[in-house]
């Protein structure tokens, strides 16, 4: 989409600055896509997702971020906690609004408390999701709720591609999906199963949401591309093992929280510049900002 705006500028078409500003930050697409998914889930797939749960969860993540930013004296930005809240409401099912709020607080606090070399370890939504569903019977992950409608899968794929393409982390999503698919097809070959089975297993809404909106988070994945690809393969293998050897359908989501602590190791082995969200680009010229890449030497000094 940034490409579109640049193209338009080349042709002398200038978008109002706030629109190109909106287009520049990958988080904005993510917010739009996740919100549309929530609406789709609620109205088309009849999720049991009362609106006040969504509001409460957003309130708790944004609130926690505001307080934490105040404490550490950083400028408050509501976009990241908003994304965490949307991911949480998409993947966590609960009948209790208190648990929704707890998940939000837990998710964002983990970002400030569990850190290594200036980078938080866990994907906030993944952390809140897993901890809540392990601790309380009243909260669970519902991998089957999206069904396997292929058209829907394609839709997600397309939307996800845009989002992660913007975030420069499409490599993680693709590496994860490809390696997971390879494992599923390998299993089917070994068992002598028809390929309809791995195809069915891949058409999982939860898997695609995970691949495009959770593991692709640039803040918690390894900095270098090679590191990211290897990391995605590791997550896929562990998720696959949990799903098929330990019979837990949420395997891939659990795999991410289990492997997150070794991301610093990947960063050590494959050093690269740290990812930074673009600065909010309300510039007068309407030029969208590219990602700031800080050379690795500066960070490691």
């Amino acid at each position: 989409m940034a490409g579109v705006s640049q193209q338009m500028q080349k042709q002398g078409i200038h978008l109002p600055s706030f629109i190109s500003g909106l287009l520049a930050d990958p988080r904005h697409y993510q917010i739009i896509v996740l919100s549309s998914l929530i609406l789709l889930g609620t109205f088309h797939f009849a999720f049991q997702l009362p609106w006040w749960h969504v509001v409460a969860c957003i309130g708790s993540t944004v609130g926690t971020q505001a307080v934490a930013d105040k404490v550490i004296g950083r400028k408050f930005d509501a976009r990241s906690p908003l994304i965490s809240a949307l991911s949480l409401t998409l993947l966590l099912r609960t009948g209790s609004v208190t648990l929704s709020i707890a998940a939000g607080i837990l998710a964002i606090s983990s970002k400030y408390i569990i850190r290594w070399r200036g980078k938080h370890i866990f994907n906030p939504a993944n952390f809140g999701l897993v901890i809540l569903s392990l601790l309380f019977t009243g909260a669970w992950i519902s991998p089957g709720q999206w069904g396997t409608a292929p058209i829907f899968a394609l839709f997600l794929l397309g939307m996800g591609g845009i989002v992660t393409g913007k975030a420069k982390r499409w490599d993680v999503s693709i590496a994860l999906l490809v390696s997971y698919a390879a494992l599923l097809f390998g299993r089917a070959l070994w068992l002598g199963d028809p390929f309809a089975i791995p195809v069915h297993q891949l058409q999982s809404g939860a898997l695609l949401i995970f691949a495009f909106f959770m593991i692709s988070d640039p803040k918690t994945t390894p900095d270098a591309r090679l590191g990211r690809v290897l990391y995605a393969m590791l997550v896929a293998s562990i998720g696959f093992t949990i799903q098929f050897a330990f019979y837990n359908a949420a395997g891939i989501i659990l795999a991410l929280i289990l492997t997150a602590p070794i991301v610093p190791l990947f960063d050590r082995l494959f050093p690269a510049g740290r990812y930074h969200w673009p600065k909010f680009p309300m510039t007068k010229t309407g030029v969208s900002h590219e990602t700031v890449q800080i050379p690795a030497q500066i960070l490691t000094k």
Binding site: A46, P143, G144, Q145, W146, T148, Q201, A249
Partner: peptide, 8 residues
């Protein structure tokens, strides 16, 4: 609920 099919 079923995990590999959608329960509605």
């Amino acid at each position: 609920e079923t995990t590999n099919y959608r329960t509605q």
